[in-house]
Design a binder for these strands. Structure first.
Length: 300
DNA sequence: ATACAGATTCCATAGGACTT
DNA sequence: AAGTCCTATGGAATCTGTAT
């Protein structure tokens, strides 16, 4: 790129305008590009994760992963079942992330980016909300073992002190834990498949790591919009929609992309279309920009 | 335990507004 | 004039709670 800029500068004024549109344009273009690349080296975890291009991880999921785990070094070593602790991440997405991270080439890409000066600027501790569900029963329920669902997982969680104890146990111990023979056999079969016991123990170790990283008592700040789902539609004149969304999020709101009966509030700006119509159809509260600004004004 | 349905997310596309 | 940014749209895939 720098070479392109150098050539463009050298050409400036010497090439007929109709062939070059003036070297300065090309020069400025190259400069802007180089600067933009430099600036992009300092980035957020959310953007970094999104940029990896993991299948099923778009902007929304990347943001969720970033806020829940907070640390790239933590995330890149997590076994896939742990990703299911994040709301809106299920089996498909969790496996997709795990599959990506399992490829040595992809880990190398991350190392290369860091080596070239890419920095994540907003590393933080995991959310306190993560503490919930970091136990053996929840893990077993999320490993997707045939015939072992929530109830069976709870029974196993109560019967065994830890994952190692479960991995070492003979089948009849699963039965005495309360499992039906079918579930017990299925679990034993699963543990016998190559890699599965290893996965279980890795998950257990990751849970211990997470428990240490999660803050003891999370700052349970209750915002005025906690539990509310807000949809923004149409154009706003005083700020972009991203800004408005960020402000509302900071007050506890969840920003959604489409209107449903779960929507608490629709903010309709200029030229709002089908989403406003749907909000009216469902009888959902609608604010115009003035009402939004008035509200935001109360919480600077 | 499983099937189903509604809600949500991902992702490509397109058009208009704005910037260079 | 060309390029970029923002927003809307809609199909396909996925998540999740509920009924069977």
């Amino acid at each position: 790129l720098l070479e392109m800029k150098r050539r463009a500068d050298a050409r400036d004024g010497t090439t007929p305008a109709h062939l070059n549109k003036g070297g300065k344009v090309a020069s400025k273009w190259a400069e802007n590009l180089v600067e933009a690349i430099d600036r992009s080296r300092a980035t957020t975890l959310e953007r970094f994760l999104f940029a990896l291009g993991i299948q099923h991880v778009g902007e929304s999921t990347a943001k969720a992963l970033a806020t829940w785990f907070g640390d790239l070094e933590l995330i890149r070593r997590l076994p896939w079942p742990l990703f299911k602790r994040v709301p809106d991440v299920g089996g498909e997405v969790a496996r997709s992330i795990g599959h990506f991270l399992d490829q040595p080439g992809n880990q190398q890409v991350i190392d290369d980016l860091l080596a070239r000066g890419v920095r994540v600027t907003d590393t933080h501790a995991p959310t306190a909300k993560l503490r919930e569900g970091l136990d053996l029963a929840t893990l077993l329920a999320e490993l997707e073992i045939p015939k072992v669902t929530r109830i069976r997982a709870e029974q196993l969680g109560n019967a065994f002190a830890n994952a190692q104890a479960l991995a070492d146990a003979p089948v009849h111990h699963f039965v005495s834990a309360g499992l039906p023979a079918e579930s017990a056999n299925s679990l034993a079969g699963w543990l016998g498949m190559p890699g599965n016991t290893d996965l279980l123990l890795k998950c257990a170790a990751a849970i211990d790591t997470l428990l240490e990283a999660v803050p003891e008592t999370g700052p349970v700040s209750v915002g005025p919009l906690d539990g509310k789902t807000v949809v923004l539609t149409g154009g706003l004149s005083s700020m972009t929609r991203d800004e408005a969304g960020a402000r509302l999020e900071a007050l506890g709101a969840k920003i959604a992309g489409s209107v449903s009966k779960k929507t608490s509030l629709v903010v309709a700006g200029e030229a709002a279309g089908s989403k406003l119509a749907k909000a009216e159809e469902l009888g959902i509260e609608v604010w115009d920009e003035a009402r939004l600004l008035d509200f935001l004004g109360q919480y600077p």
